[in-house]
Amino acid sequence: MAEPVITVDALTTHYGAQCVLRDINLAVAEGEILVIMGGSGSGKSTLLYHLLGLLEPTEGAIRILGMDINRCSNRELEDVRRHTGVAFQGGALFSSLSVGDNIRLPLEEHTGLDRSTIDIMVRMKLEVVELAGREHLMPSQLSGGMVKRAALARAVVMDPRLLFCDEPSAGLDPVVAAGIDDLILKLREALGMSIVVVTHELESAFKIADRIVVLDQGAILASGSPAELRAHPSDKLQRLFNRQPEIPDFDADAYLHRLMGDAVP
C-alpha cells in the first residue's frame, strides 16, 4: 500500500498553559480529499498551520510527502513546499502584483522556464479556474469569488501533489461557494492531487470530502466518510451539525427581561 502523503502522529500543541491541539492522529492518502471541520476555536486553523510547517508542535510528528517537516533541514522543507500548494482564506494574493504575476511567481522562482512558456502555463491555469483573460487585473479589482479562484490558480500552478485550502468558500454567497466546491473537485479530477480543506461550512464539507475529520476543542471528535458520519452521528456531533449551542440552564425570558426591562410583555 502506498505511503500516505500526510501522516500526523500524536500531535499536541500548547500555547502557554492552554492546550489547543490534543493527540491528533490522521493520514491523507494519495488523491484523497480530506476535510477538517469544526466550529470557531476548535483548532482547525492551528492544525492547518502545523501541516504547512508554519507552527511547531509541542509533541508529535507530521510527515508530508515522506518528510518529517519539523525535523528536516530548511532545504528539505523547501523541496516539500515546492510539491504543495496553498490557497489561503483571504486569497493572500500579493496586492502589488497583477493576477497573472501572482500566478507566475512560483514558476519564476522555482523553474528555469522561459517567459513565453510561463505565460502559457499561467493562461492554462487561469482557464482551469475560469479566469481566462483576467491576468492583467490587480487583486483589488477582483470580486471575492474571483480572488479565491485566482488563489487556487496560484496554488496549483506548479502541479503540486498536495493542495491545502483554508476556508475556500467562506464569505461567499451560496452560488459562488458551490462554484468553488465544484472547482476543487475539478482540480482533483484534472491534476490528481490530494487535497486538505479546512472549513466550517457543512454543506461544502459533505459535498467535496472523501473523508471528514471533525475537531472540537482541539481534539478529534469524529472521523469518517460523509456517509459514515451521516449514518452514525454521536450526540455531540449532531449538536455541532445542528449548530445548537450548549447553554446550560439558559432562561430566555430572564435574559430578555434583563436586556429590555419592562418593555417585554
Binding site: 504547512l52 510547517g53 508554519l54 523547501e78 523541496d79 513546499r81 515546492r82 504543495t84 496553498v86 489561503f88 482564506q89 483571504g90 493572500a92 494574493l93 500579493f94 496586492s95 511567481l105 512560483p106 522562482e109 522555482h110 491545502f164
Partner: peptide, 13 residues
C-alpha cells in the same frame, strides 16, 4: 496581516 508573508513561506520563497 493579509497572510502574504505566510503565502511566500509556503511557496518556498
Amino acid at each position: 496581516i493579509n497572510q502574504e508573508v505566510d503565502a511566500l513561506r509556503v511557496m518556498g520563497i
